[in-house]
Design a binder for these strands. Structure first.
Ligand code: SF4
Ligand code: SF4
Lengths: 144, 144
DNA sequence: TTTATATCGGACAAATTTATCCGAAATAAA
DNA sequence: TTTATTTCGGATAAATTTGTCCGATATAAA
């Protein structure tokens, strides 16, 4: 469904959001430990997220990553996914035709487009805040 | 969503089904041409489909691939997908946790499982026959 | 029986994704 | 000002997926 990079990206962002809600900035090592991901690879993904203004990064001692509190309920999962995986998952054809074109659809079009659009709506309708609260109260988990 | 191998597999199977409905056996070259796929790679995928008894293969001159007519409305998309991509798409966690476990869910669980189950139902509820008819009347396409 | 044609199966190669390494740049604290 | 710490960014490596090649095997037809 999502690439590994995207999975790590979502988990990392959620952890940063959770910590930011508690006014804590977190560094790369702690993020990778929390989400059980390869440190250096996670660094790359965080760089990408920072470039896309999804997270803020601060260099130097006491540095790390954070998200402005007031933005946490504004940021949608869809932003993270398209920053890392692009928009193929929203726009792409289920059978890999060059472009999705309802006027010359693949055999799966009718049935596939419904699922794809539901996924799109789900990602666009889900904020970081919403998911972070489940984490906060220990109802959901970033690793197992 | 699906791997390239799976996309080719679905398209190839659909074309074979379409031809089988007209009592025609088709060979590798014609399949690859019809679905616009790399010939040798397609051969590997067809081998896999034959091993999984999704298509029948016949060697030698006039040989090729076919599907028993009466099975075409029995075979579901889900069989092709799990033969090639395995069942990660049905069972896997949206955020890549080792196993999907609703008792220790990832933050996306509630929203993701719905989409994933819809996809599963769609694939399990869709037969080759159903998709082949759209192709037959020129309403849908395997390449563009 | 010979030949031509087709899939099968294994080895290999290219491309992409995932992951690592390390020096540069920034910056907080000593 | 120096040092330690942290992210940044580019090069490189490993793993996986995608794609190719070619001989072996089966078989229909000449
Ligand atoms: S919208 Fe168009 S072409 Fe599409 S999946 Fe559906 S597709 Fe294939
Ligand atoms: S079903 Fe939902 S889950 Fe269980 S862990 Fe999953 S995505 Fe995460």
């Amino acid at each position: 469904m999502f690439s590994k990079a995207c999975e790590y990206g979502i988990k990392a962002t959620l952890f940063i959001a959770l910590q930011s809600l508690q006014d804590q900035r977190v560094n790369l090592k702690d993020i990778a430990k929390e989400i059980n991901s390869p440190v250096a690879f996670t660094a790359k993904i965080l760089q990408q997220l920072a470039k896309n203004n999804i997270v803020d990064s601060v260099k130097g001692p006491t540095g790390g990553f954070q998200i402005e509190k007031k933005r946490i309920d504004k940021i949608r999962l869809s932003e993270i996914v398209s920053a890392i995986d692009g928009d193929a998952i929203y726009k792409g054809c289920g059978l890999g035709l060059k472009e999705c074109n309802a006027n010359k659809p693949c055999p799966l079009h009718n049935k596939f487009a419904i699922i794809r659009d539901d996924l799109k709506e789900m990602l666009e309708g889900t904020s970081l805040y919403e998911l972070a609260t489940g984490l906060e109260v220990g109802l959901t988990f970033l690793k197992r």
